[in-house]
Design a protein around this nucleic acid. Structure first.
Lengths: 190, 190
DNA sequence: GCGATCAATGTCAGTAACTGTCATCAGTCT
DNA sequence: AGACTGATGACAGTTACTGACATTGATCGC
């Protein structure tokens, strides 16, 4: 038997989510989270940079999906198609099994401005990664940023619908529609 | 003569900007800002909710410009045209005289993740206001959010170019181009 | 099998952001 | 003159976060 219970990081993450849900983000103290899993505040901060970050572990994986998806697009793809490929690849990150967890997490974030800020920054990081991928393909800056931001917007709208009550469509299914809607929004008129 | 120097809020804002620029955001203490203008830390927090917010005073005015601009669009305008009107109206908030100040502020924000988070939230609030304006016109949700977010994206890209070195075009001028670019991005291909 | 080393954690002290509460006091009102 | 107000100060308290050092079961080299 090892000296400590394994999976400290995961246990801390779970306790944080539960406590934030049960008594609110601001009302929950880092010391409480740590105590709930038999650790100390100091250890929490060894695993997570701050009290918010604990809800965003794994966001690098999502970013990786985006980047890989973009890389997989054909060499001569238009900017918007590269972005579509990236966002489509992200669907892998959201299988049905994860919907309940994702919803619980999203509710907490939406209810707390500080968490919302962190979420927005993560989305911004995602967009930056996409911009870099586009620039690697020789697409320059007004276009690259516009395309990347549009992709992230589609992603966010898709996610919101995916976790919306009374919805049972798959992530990738919704995403197709949202992209189509974006096309009709800016395209056909004049 | 009154008991205190007038304009406490403005003095605090000015000192904060200068200190953040001179020695960095994290390295500047709220007590320092207050001392610099002969006040106490406590008074700072009576004017600003937190250390970041001091750089975002007046953002309600920008939001008002957006909303007013949207309201001024013709009744039968397409979603994208309502958004164009809103973003166009925002140009009023950025006359040439303000470019130097806006640049200094933007540099500080870009260099500090916590400030970037706040900036992103303000942009998100802007988008929310636009969504509300669009919904008032009977435009529903996937479309409303997509349109509003696209508008804010155009706004951000425009702003970035406006303050970019070696650029002397007006805000509204750049904005036209960026909107056009967005159109060609999603429109013509297929 | 034994001492050196390691890795995950604990302990403790310190800083700074933010909050609540009450005191102060120049100017204004009646 | 006395009551009142509104902007500020003084002060104590909580909590997020950091740096430095101590602890100890497990492991590795020999």
């Amino acid at each position: 038997m090892s000296r400590w219970e394994p999976g400290a990081r995961e246990r801390l993450g779970g306790a944080a989510l539960d406590l934030y849900a049960a008594k609110g983000f601001e009302e929950t103290t880092v010391a409480e989270i740590a105590q709930a899993v038999g650790l100390t505040e100091r250890t929490f901060f060894r695993y997570f940079a701050d009290k918010r970050e604990v809800l965003f572990a794994g966001s690098e994986l999502l970013e990786q999906q985006f980047v890989d998806g973009a890389a997989a697009a054909p060499n001569d793809a238009d900017p918007i198609d590269v972005v579509k490929a990236a966002v489509a690849a992200s669907a892998e990150y959201f299988p049905e099994e994860r919907r309940a967890y994702a919803t619980k997490r999203a509710v907490i974030i939406a209810a707390n401005p500080p968490l919302m800020e962190r979420e927005l920054r993560k989305m911004s990081t995602l967009a930056e990664a996409l911009v870099a991928a586009l620039k690697n393909r020789g697409i320059h800056d007004p276009t690259a940023t516009l395309a990347a931001q549009s992709g992230v917007t589609v992603f966010r709208v898709t996610f919101a619908q995916w976790i919306a009550a009374g919805n049972d469509r798959s992530f990738i299914d919704i995403e197709q529609d949202v992209f189509a809607e974006l096309g009709t929004l800016t395209g056909p008129n004049r």
